[in-house]
Simulated assay, not measured.
Amino acid sequence: MSTFSIFLILIVIVAFLLVVVIMVQNPKGGGLSSSFGGGGGQQLGGVKKTTDFLDKSTWALATLLLALILASNIAIGGSEAELESKALDPESTTTVPAEDLPAEAIPLTDEESN
């Protein structure tokens, strides 16, 4: 398994976790903390800490995702020598013999056109 594949798997996992953490939060300040009774004046079971944890985990996962994306870009740059397609290789020239071309693709000379 290549280094890029490992980075790709980690990026997908972190992105999934980031989506889950963001979906748990409520944009109006409720979210997971409101389901534990944090909407009122009392704080049962440290609900404020739950909100702080979700905020910190969002920033940590976003930072980790950015770092993994940048690292995967470096991993791609290391494999430039392994071109699999001739279309990507500018030094590769492929010529097709004239007898393999269809008749309408072969240009006529001045003598043949008269």
Rank of each mutant, 00 (worst) to 15 (best):
M1E: 03
T3G: 08
T3Y: 04
S5A: 13
S5G: 11
F7V: 08
L8E: 11
L10R: 13
I13R: 11
I13D: 02
I13L: 13
I13Q: 09
V14E: 11
V14S: 11
A15S: 01
F16G: 07
L17A: 15
L18W: 00
L18E: 09
V20S: 02
V21L: 01
V24E: 06
Q25L: 15
N26T: 07
P27N: 06
P27G: 01
G31W: 07
G31N: 05
G31I: 06
S35F: 10
G37K: 10
G39I: 08
G41M: 06
G46C: 06
G46S: 10
V47H: 05
V47P: 02
K49A: 04
K49I: 07
L54G: 04
L54V: 08
W59R: 14
W59S: 09
W59H: 07
A60M: 02
A60S: 07
L61Y: 01
L61P: 07
L61D: 05
T63S: 08
L64P: 01
L66K: 00
L66M: 13
A67T: 06
L68K: 12
S72Q: 09
S72D: 15
S72Y: 00
S72I: 05
S72P: 00
N73V: 12
G77M: 05
A81P: 03
E84S: 10
E84P: 01
D89T: 01
T95Q: 15
V96E: 11
L101A: 08
L101M: 15
L101N: 03
A103D: 13
I106C: 00
L108A: 08
E112Q: 13
E112S: 06
E112Y: 04
